[in-house]
Design a protein around this nucleic acid. Structure first.
Length: 112
DNA sequence: GTTTTGACGGCGG
DNA sequence: TCCGCCGCCAAAA
């Protein structure tokens, strides 16, 4: 079944909204979960437009290394890190410490 | 209509 | 383990 871009964006937002406080997920994990494995960039692209939506914790989405690659897309460069630390996630030099501990993979947590 | 770019990830060297 | 190339696909130039 074919998924339109609009629907894909919606799905991305839905998944991101499911990420609990103090946890993070990755672009690739979301892409894989939505059946668009290998198209992690599309997730990032969707996130780029996430500011149009409400209640989308975009700061809980990082790349697979746990780097805050999208921080420049927030109101201020340190906004993303501040939100994460506010939830108890320590960040150093754009890198989430103990990344694996905080990782929330929809494919595992939601396991369908 | 073609080329470049991008909030990424896997794989090879 | 770290670095770089390539594949992915949509949007902007």
């Amino acid at each position: 079944m074919k998924i339109n871009r609009q629907q894909f964006f919606e799905d991305v937002y839905q998944v991101v909204k499911l990420v609990p406080e103090g946890r993070v997920t990755t672009y690739g994990a979301i892409a894989h979960f939505l059946g668009a494995k290998g198209s992690a960039r599309m997730v990032g692209y969707a996130m780029n437009a996430s500011h149009l939506q409400e209640d989308v914790p975009a700061h809980r989405v990082v790349n697979r290394k746990g780097l805050l690659t999208g921080k420049h897309h927030f109101s201020s460069a340190d906004e993303m890190q501040r939100r994460l630390e506010k939830e108890g996630i320590r960040v150093s030099d754009d890198q989430i410490l103990d990344f694996e501990k905080h990782l929330w993979d929809p494919n595992v947590e939601l396991s369908f």
